[in-house]
């Protein structure tokens, strides 16, 4: 493993930021102050961070409706995200997008997305642009197990191979699309098995294990950067909360989430490994936890005290120019 101390601290910090952000949004949503549809990424942190740790601002990612984790992993500012979720004018998207549409193109984050399966075609375009612009960039589409069944996703896999694009398709298989089990909705055993049909490597990885994800991601990203074409990677993981906030989750097995949390929580696995191997100390991790808690607290306070958009904002930014 080629991660130095600073990188390990960074990986832990990102995963902790995502977890703390999502736990807090969950609590705040329950108070009724957060409007709209909110889908939380808690439990899946190792996937977003394992991939995005390899990326720079020139690299692009496209996310899903469950986008907060990908945003944070790609470097989108937390304060702006929280303000956006609260519908404030100083939010990442000026309060016009909300949780499902957070995007920050300067950070290479092409948007959370309200349309399941919309990311992969866009990521083919990002890969194509990187190829033409010869900037060495790669492009990663995150989709869910549900999104992996969408025609747009399957068409993109084909296109990426045909055009030999520097793209990676990450299927985050958390077992469910809304209430529907991926065991039922996905026609083959592993989503990654489909890679063979599209002439690209397919890899299954334990999405709870940051180090495993990081390694698999690194290989695929290296290959893509060197012109070796696309890869399909399936991360098997779990979501800790409901499909969206307010989901009663009666489709889930008893203690399902509890068991996962106790046995393979990604933050727990990471902490255990780095402390046991003497790579980081518990004190270092605790310090990050504290800093992150304060950061999230401040982002909520900042969001709540920030102004909402005004009527003057309604008609702006529909076009670049329009007579």
């Amino acid at each position: 493993m080629n991660l130095n101390e600073a990188q390990l601290l960074q990986a832990y910090r990102k995963m902790r930021q995502i977890r703390a952000f999502e736990d807090r949004v969950h609590d705040e949503f329950a108070t009724g102050e957060i409007p709209g549809f909110v889908h939380l990424y808690a439990g899946e942190e190792a996937s977003a961070v394992g991939f995005c740790m390899h990326l720079n601002d020139e690299d692009r990612i496209a996310s899903t409706h469950r986008g907060h984790g990908h945003c944070i992993a790609k470097g989108v500012e937390i304060k702006g995200m929280m303000s956006e979720i609260y519908g404030r004018r100083n939010g990442t998207c000026a309060g016009k997008g909300g949780s499902m549409h957070i995007a920050d193109l300067e950070k290479g984050m092409m948007g959370a997305n309200g349309i399941v399966g919309a990311g992969p075609p866009l990521i083919c375009g990002a890969g194509l642009a990187a190829k033409f612009r010869k900037n060495g960039g790669v492009a990663i589409a995150f989709v869910g197990d549900g999104g992996s069944n969408q025609g747009t996703t399957l068409e993109s896999l084909n296109l990426a191979t045909v055009w030999n694009l520097p793209c990676i398709f990450v299927a985050e298989n958390n077992g469910y699309a809304e209430s529907t089990g991926s065991k039922w909705s996905v026609s083959c055993e592993n989503i990654a098995d489909r890679a063979a049909a599209f002439g690209m490597p397919g890899v299954v990885v334990d999405g709870h294990d940051f180090f495993a994800v990081y390694e698999v991601a690194g290989e695929a990203i290296k290959r893509a950067r060197e012109g070796g074409g696309p890869t399909l990677i399936e991360c098997k993981l779990n979501r800790y909360y409901g499909h969206f906030e307010g989901d009663a989750q009666t489709y889930r097995g008893v203690d399902e989430v509890k068991k996962v949390k106790e046995s393979k929580d990604c933050l727990m696995l990471f902490s255990k490994r780095v402390t046991e191997q003497g790579l980081l100390t518990q004190a270092q991790l605790d310090a990050i936890d504290k800093e992150v808690a304060a950061e999230i607290e401040a982002s909520v306070a900042h969001a709540k005290s920030s102004a909402k958009p005004t009527s003057a904002d309604l008609m702006t930014d529909v076009y670049v120019s329009y007579p």
Partner: peptide, 20 residues
């Protein structure tokens, strides 16, 4: 439709959603 019943291939209740 998607989740018109709900709970397919899952361990919990069938007809868990009955539509979104």
């Amino acid at each position: 439709g998607e989740d018109n019943v709900g709970g397919m291939g899952a361990e919990g209740e069938i007809d868990a959603w009955g539509g979104v």
